[in-house]
Nucleic acid binder design. Structure first.
Length: 495
DNA sequence: CCACGAGCGGTTCAACACGC
DNA sequence: GCGTGTTGAACCGCTCGTGG
């Protein structure tokens, strides 16, 4: 009897350990960057709920929170856990989160909603039934790109809300190894009000330092940071993120296991698609070849590769976009200083990143890009550009802006014209105003967004071939790209 | 009662701006 | 180039509230 009781207990505990170790918290990066402030308990419930979502789920369901399990997993010492959960659910219904959604037109929009839509407690069952707000569905389900995933156990090893929150923010950039935050923005993300920690030293000591120390001690990440000044004021924090070697090994092993399982289930699909090497002489032969390839489903493989490359490119651009929002004036200045008749700054940035990415010479392209800015600045390229406090002619600026708006100038043209007519004369005179640069941030972002158009180009040898391919396979291909990669616009072009 | 975290006041120090 | 004033960061140490 006693033995039985003991084994049962052990089983429960080991189950808890399994859940804790295996459960993943996965969310879209927009949700990672959302603005909200919760208590540690409220956030723990949110994370627990998210971990309950299965990748194959069709829709958000109602989720059950067994209080005992939650207590065991979160490792809390609260005695009255029912009250804690109840109060946390009440709190969650009172505290909205704010998500920045980036629409296709490049305009910023916000979604404000609660994490949960409702909570129910059934007496005698020891658990709460909780619904996640339906509006969060796109940020939690069907995530293919731009999401962050981490183990529940690392969150629950942390002691404060800020530590948990900073952990996922840093986790998002573990691959890049680098994250820059504009302090007011970071404060908003962490839900820190204007009256809280108004002084940087307190903010650093109580929030950043403490969270970083805890993350280093208890999670899979190894984080350090540097404070960056704009003038005398500390305006940015640069975080440097590494995955601890043990955690990396563990993950590598898991990856291998997943890969092996996939192979067993689907047959080996890792063989790369080979491009036919022999020269094809006439059109009939070419078409025959294509038809046969299609039969063998080779085309699908080719499309898959194209889709993957496109998505990778998109990802790099998205990363640049995210970085631009965090670039400080000096970094924008670097982009602009490289501007000449033919080159446009974003092209330079893109080239650097894509080349680095393509050659795999650098493990950390974005970090490299930002470092490039830093190195150039330290070479005193900008030292001569002493920023004076002289005010720019706002009237002139406004006129220019309005004129360009009316003309419908594209973002890149806008930057070029603006650089030549407004910035460059000041630059030459050593009179450059910070605010001018701030005004350029938006067009820079717009330039990248322009580039993010969901287009995919399939290049074929000649027009007849193009027409034939389009009529024969066009619909299938478009359907394939839409379903598989969510790419709408597929263009077939001839050389 | 103690431990701990949050918040804040006071002081010192360094960087920068400004006027001469 | 120098002295002076201003601003912001760093540091010390205190109180207050909460929870065990």
């Amino acid at each position: 009897m006693e033995d039985k009781e003991k084994t049962k207990k052990l089983e429960v505990v080991s189950n808890v350990e399994v859940v804790k170790n295996k459960s993943l918290v996965t969310m879209h990066n927009k949700l990672v960057e959302a603005k909200y402030k919760l208590t540690k308990e409220e956030f723990s419930i949110v994370l627990f709920l998210i971990a309950l979502i299965q990748p194959q789920d069709e829709d958000l369901k109602e989720y059950q929170i067994p209080v005992k399990i939650l207590k065991a997993i979160s490792g809390t010492k609260h005695k009255n856990m029912y009250r804690v959960v109840k109060e946390a659910l009440e709190g969650l219904l009172k505290k909205p989160i704010k998500i920045k959604t980036l629409e296709e037109d490049g305009k910023e929009r916000f979604l404000i909603c609660n994490f949960i839509s409702h909570g129910e407690y059934k007496e005698g069952e020891g658990s709460f039934i909780v619904g996640i707000d339906k509006k969060l569905k796109p940020y939690l389900l069907f995530l293919k790109e731009n999401f962050t995933s981490s183990k529940l156990k690392y969150f629950f090893s942390l002691r404060s809300f800020y530590s948990m929150r900073l952990y996922i923010l840093l986790k998002q950039f573990e691959k890049t190894g680098f994250r820059v935050d504009y302090i007011p923005e970071l404060r908003e993300i962490l839900g820190i009000g204007k009256n809280e920690y108004p002084r940087f030293d307190n903010f650093e000591k109580r929030v950043i330092k403490k969270a970083v120390e805890e993350i280093n001690q208890k999670t899979d990440l190894e984080v350090s940071y540097k404070k960056k000044k704009t003038g005398r004021r500390i305006t940015h924090i640069e975080f440097y993120i590494k995955v601890k070697p043990d955690a990396a090994k563990e993950r590598e092993l898991e990856k291998k296991i997943i890969e092996e399982v996939r192979k067993l289930n689907q047959g080996d699909t890792t063989e790369t698609t080979k491009v036919p090497s022999q020269t094809i002489n006439n059109k009939e032969q070419k078409q025959e070849k294509i038809k046969n390839s299609a039969k063998e489903k080779d085309l699908e493989k080719v499309w898959t590769e194209i889709g993957k490359i496109r998505k990778k490119y998109e990802k790099v651009l998205n990363e640049i976009l995210q970085k631009i929002s965090r670039l400080n004036e000096n970094q924008i200045l670097f982009l602009l200083a490289n501007l000449n008749e033919n080159d446009i700054p974003i092209e330079i940035a893109k080239e650097i990143v894509i080349t680095a990415d393509r050659n795999k010479a650098l493990k950390n392209p974005m970090g490299f890009l930002i470092k490039t800015f830093d190195i150039d600045m330290s070479k005193a390229r900008f030292k001569e550009l002493t920023l004076t406090s002289k005010k720019i002619d706002e009237k002139l600026l406004k006129e220019k802006l309005e004129k360009m708006m009316i003309d419908g100038t594209s973002a890149l043209d806008y930057i070029r014209v603006y650089w030549n007519e407004v910035i460059k004369p000041r630059y030459n005179n050593g009179e450059l105003d910070k605010r001018t640069l701030k005004l350029l941030r938006e067009p820079l972002q717009k330039a990248v967004i322009d580039d993010l158009e969901n287009k995919i180009y399939v290049i074929v040898p000649d027009i007849a071939y193009r027409d034939w391919l389009d009529s024969e396979f066009g619909d299938d291909m478009r359907k394939f790209f839409k379903e598989r990669f969510d790419i709408d616009d597929v263009v077939v072009e001839s050389l």
